[in-house]
């Protein structure tokens, strides 16, 4: 598969789960499946809300500490999105299987912990949200997420959208930001060396990339930019699916 920066998605292709999606972007492909609300084990049961269980499986080998860390980020994020109070004493189980990662040019790189945790995070978040949408689990908001690499030499800063592995490793700092459909910052993970001003710029860039509605008139007029916004991508993917599902009506 070409390492295209453009996201592609496939919805509801696994028939034995309540919802499923495959999402690929920037060389990463993730298959997601969700089951829920289902019965919960007694010890995990929460009296007033649904328990969320996230399982991440790496492309090769078994999950390690890195996967546990990503799972805990996803779990706390999904708890904000899913209307968990609607399903007390149940479990919503999200399973994410990473199927491909971009090839690492650096020879001799290790398989496990080969690169930082951050590169895969947007793909995981995006797959999780598409999976939940495919399962029609009630959500408070949807969310979009981007990976940005920042190179800063003195005054001038360059932000790279969807950096390749080499760009990612060479960058001064890398940032993952996720915004809700209402334009609120939900997840922010940054690594590397930067300043608060750098981060503010990254925030603005990421917000413009994520949400089209809140990005203002300037971007709305620019058709190309509008098309590239991730919220637009989620919407068009769902529109396509709804149109396909309601095909029998025509």
């Amino acid at each position: 598969m070409a390492n295209s920066a453009e996201p592609t998605a496939l919805l509801s292709h696994l028939h034995r789960t309540d919802g499923s999606a495959t999402f690929s972007q920037n060389g990463y492909t993730v298959i997601g499946a969700v089951n829920g609300p289902i019965e919960v084990q007694r010890r995990d049961e929460l009296p007033e809300e649904a328990a969320i269980d996230v399982n991440i499986r790496p492309a090769a080998g078994v999950g390690g500490t890195r996967e546990r860390h990503l799972e805990s980020i996803l779990q706390s994020t999904l708890r904000q999105i899913i209307l968990i109070t609607n399903f007390p004493r149940t479990l919503i189980q999200v399973t994410l299987q990473i199927t491909s990662t971009p090839e690492n040019d650096t020879a001799g790189s290790k398989l496990v912990q080969a690169s930082s945790n951050l590169a895969i995070l947007p793909a995981l978040l995006q797959t999780a949200i598409l999976t939940l949408l495919s399962a029609s689990i009630p959500l408070a908001v949807t969310m979009t997420s981007v990976l940005l690499a920042l190179n800063s030499n003195g005054k001038s800063r360059t932000t790279l959208k969807a950096p390749t592995i080499v760009q990612f490793q060479a960058a001064d700092s890398v940032h993952v930001l996720a915004f809700t459909s209402q334009g609120e910052l939900l997840v922010a993970e940054s690594e590397g060396i930067f300043t608060l001003e750098d981060w503010d710029e990254v925030y603005e860039t990421a917000k413009a990339l994520c949400c089209d509605e809140s990005a203002g008139e300037a971007i709305m007029q620019d058709e190309e930019e509008n098309k590239g916004s991730l919220m637009g991508f989620v919407k068009s993917t769902l529109e396509e699916k709804v149109a396909k599902d309601l095909h029998w009506k025509d």
Binding site: I73, S76, T77, R79, Q80, H175, T180, E184, L185, L186, V187, A188, E189, S190, E191, G192, I193, F194, T195, L196, D198, W199, D200, Y203
Partner: peptide, 22 residues
């Protein structure tokens, strides 16, 4: 002398924005 940031890690809610981060 100048504040350098080496990492931000935020999850689990939507309260913290640009202002709160400052």
């Amino acid at each position: 002398g100048k504040t350098k940031m080496l990492g931000i890690s935020k999850a689990g809610g939507t309260t913290i924005g640009m202002l709160e981060m400052k």
